[in-house]
Structures are given as C-alpha cells and as structure tokens.
Nucleic acid binder design. Structure first.
Lengths: 225, 225
DNA sequence: TTCATACTTCGATGGTAACCGAAGCATTTG
DNA sequence: CAAATGCTTCGGTTACCATCGAAGTATGAA
C-alpha cells in the first residue's frame, strides 16, 4: 500500500517563514509562550496561534499549560535534531536569515541546540570524550563507557538517573557550523545544565548563543582541551 | 548580520507534494527526464518544468543536457542525505505516501539511497565492516582502514581511484527503515555498482527497490553475515 | 526543409493559506 | 464579583502559487 515516507508534509510545515522562525526560536531549548513566539516571528498573536496549532498537529511542537500561560516547545529531541540537520544544509548553501545583530561568531563558538551544547565548544567536548575512551560511537548512536560514567559522575551528574529515562543517554547530533557531531541525548542536556548551574556559562537572551564566563571557559578548556 | 541559517526556503521547496514526489523519484539515483518526473508526480509537463526550475534555483537538483533530452538528478550526495534524513523522520511519525503496489517490504530489505545501498542489507553491510575493523566511525564521518582497503580491493574495486575524488570515500547515512546508519560516500556508490555489475542484484523499474538474485543474496550474505 | 520530439515560457484561472480585526473563552488578580 | 491577561476561534480579505492550455524554442530525424 505504501511506498516510502512522505516528506512533503514536514516540508510544508517548515516551509512557511513564520513557522520556520518560531521553530528556530524554539531551538533555543526554552519553552516559549504564544505571545513570545509571535514576536519572534513578527506576526500577530492570532496568526501565531493558527501556526502553532498546525505545528502541534504535525507533531513538531508540544504545549504545556501552566496557569494562564501556554508554553510551547519542540515535541522531542528528534525534532531538534532534524532542524539542526536542515540548518546545516541551509548553512552550507549560504541560506541565512538576515537579522540585525553581530551574533554569528558567538553562535559558532557556543550555542544551545534544543537542549544541549553545540558549536565549537560542543564539538570539542565530544571529540575529547571519544578520544579519551569515555564515549563510543556507532553511527548516530553512542554509548557511555565505564570510564566515561566515572568522569561524568565526578562532575556531579547523576548518571543512573539519566539511564532511567526512555530516551537515549548518548546521541550524536550534526553541528551546522562545524560540520561535525556534538553530544546530544539526556547526557548532553545534563552537561549543559551543569555548566549553567555552576555559573560557567549563561544563555544569551533572545538568542541561541551561550556565553562562557572567563572563569568558566578556563575550566571548560581544562576539562576538554 | 546573520543569525542562523534559514530553513524555510528548503522547507518550502520540499513542502509541495509534486516537488516532493519528484525528489523521491530522484532518490532512485538515476537521472530522469522532465517527462518522466512529470509522470512520477502526476502533473503535466509544463507544471513539472516550472517545479524543476525552482528546484534547480534552490540547488536541490542539477540538470545535464544530452541531445534533446534534459536529465535531472539530485545536485549532490548531501541532498540525498538530507532527504533520507527527513524521510526517516517522516517514517517515524507514520507519514507515508499511499501509492498502489505492495513494495514496502522489498524497500525495507534493500533499496537504493541516491547512489548507495540502503535498507536491511545496507545496514548489515556497514555493521559487518565496522565489526571487522575495516571501517572506523567518527560521528557522521567514517574512514577505511588498511584491512578495509584490502578487503574492498579484493572485490575488484579500485580504491585509489575513489580517493582521488573530492567527496569523501566513506560516509554514514541514516537509514529511515532501520533507524541505523548505512554506508554512503564514493565507496558506498562503488559497492552498489559492483553488486549490480556482477549480477548479484538489479534495480527494480520505477522504484527504489533493489532485488537480489538468489545467488547474489547468498554471496552477499556470505560476505556480510 | 519539413516534421517530430522534448522542453520552456507565457498567460489566465482557481484554490488555498497566510494574515489580521473582532469576538469569545479561560484563568488569574483585585 | 469585575477587570485584566493570555490565548483561541471566526470571518473576510488578500496575495501567492500550483496548475494547465497555448504558443514558443531547441534539437534531432526524415
């Protein structure tokens, strides 16, 4: 009956500039309200609401009611990975959103990819983990070795807790600026959260950029030279 | 000036059902004429021509004039990889093109992914090569070891010739039906070409399916158990 | 040269979807 | 309760684009 997957529905969802802008905004990893997303896309609240219901029906975003707010976020890690993938393709072809602000270098250095660290810093971190035998690669899947578990636990991350989740602990995600993989999965998320909680870095407002403090960058580089 | 890549243009190109059908047809790896693509998409020649010029402007397809025919093909390997990626995502969500013909099981067993082998057979081949230490994985990049070069050369493939090309020899590509990686790059292409040239398998007409002969399947399984 | 094939361009049409104003619903605050 | 906030739904407009018929261009065959 069926001959292959249908890519046109997904393409159509992503193909509208307003929706694409909202999805890009959600790649920041934070759940945003409809009003915030309308602002990010430069449209009114009514139009945004219509777009969001389409994105939700299409399974790209999920909403969570909280009081009188409705927070929207990417539906799951897989959506983030798909978007990062398409961004990589678009970046290679020179298709860039022209927006005010000289944020490009900062984005390439370190940024959030849905919920984990991307950019030069993200790639270097995975490279180091693999080189030290803490993480093993097998295609797009990855595994944490005994060594790796100890190293991660030493950073104050509860590794057994990560394993209880349904989604994979380790995963690779293709980086659009570096054209190499960085670490995704629940471990990737936990590591970024750790860096921020420890004050090594903080999220830039209204951007995907991650800004490391001088002290944080020194510590990060010491850990992942 | 620029804040991140623009995914909407690509999405819009893929988002039209007629264009998506043409791109899916081109995933078969063969260059097709505008007339053939119009047939595959179920539209008239004029409409197809308009779509093709858009796809070409967008860098997704490239054309080659040959006599009074114009052959269209995917612009490069990267486009094939992107499409396979989106197909994987769509397949996970149950978005399938409903078309006549019970070809789905054959597609899952072995099919062509732009120019290399995909499906169960493709995944098994890469698994075996990695397990035997012939291919090393590093994110989405991959390398051929000394052992691997010898093994490939024994199949009658000119490995040094592959290396002279600009594109990578080894590359991984995410398989939508198996959700694991298979082998792409010039080596992936050469291997599939070898199997077909040796009569182990042949392309199914008007489909991405690859049909192995009983003898061919036996030999393939012996090589990659 | 004349005809045929392969494809592109032009022009007109129709359908769809993005968009926003206004009204409606839900939740919180005062 | 009433007022305010956050968001959705409805209705109508507009603009775009996919579509196809017809005409035009290019290559090859007769």
């Amino acid at each position: 009956m069926k001959e292959g997957p249908d890519i046109s529905q997904i393409g159509a969802l992503i193909g509208d500039p307003a929706r694409a802008n909202m999805l890009t905004a959600l790649m920041g990893g934070q759940a945003l309200t409809a009003t915030e997303l309308a602002g990010a896309a430069g449209i009114t609240l009514q139009t945004a609401s219509s777009h969001l219901s389409k994105l939700e029906t299409g399974g790209l975003v999920a909403q969570r009611k909280q009081g009188r707010h409705r927070y929207f976020a990417l539906a799951d890690d897989e959506v983030g990975q798909l978007l990062e993938n398409i961004m990589g393709f678009a970046a290679n072809r020179g298709l860039m959103r022209t927006r005010p602000g000289p944020k490009d270098p900062a984005l390439r250095k370190a940024r959030v990819c849905y919920n984990h660290l991307a950019g030069d810093f993200g790639v270097r971190m995975l490279d180091r983990l693999v080189a030290d035998g803490d993480v093993t690669l097998d295609g797009d899947e990855a595994g944490l070795t005994q060594n790796g578990e100890a190293r991660i636990a030493a950073l104050g991350i509860d590794v057994p807790a990560l394993k209880t989740q349904r989604r994979p602990v380790c995963r690779t995600c293709l980086d659009w600026s570096e054209r190499r993989s960085h670490l995704a999965g629940s471990l990737g998320e936990a590591l970024l959260a750790r860096f921020i909680a420890d004050g090594w870095a903080r999220r830039e407002k209204d951007s995907r950029a991650i800004r490391f403090t001088p002290e944080g960058e020194k510590r990060f580089t010491a850990l992942f030279p």
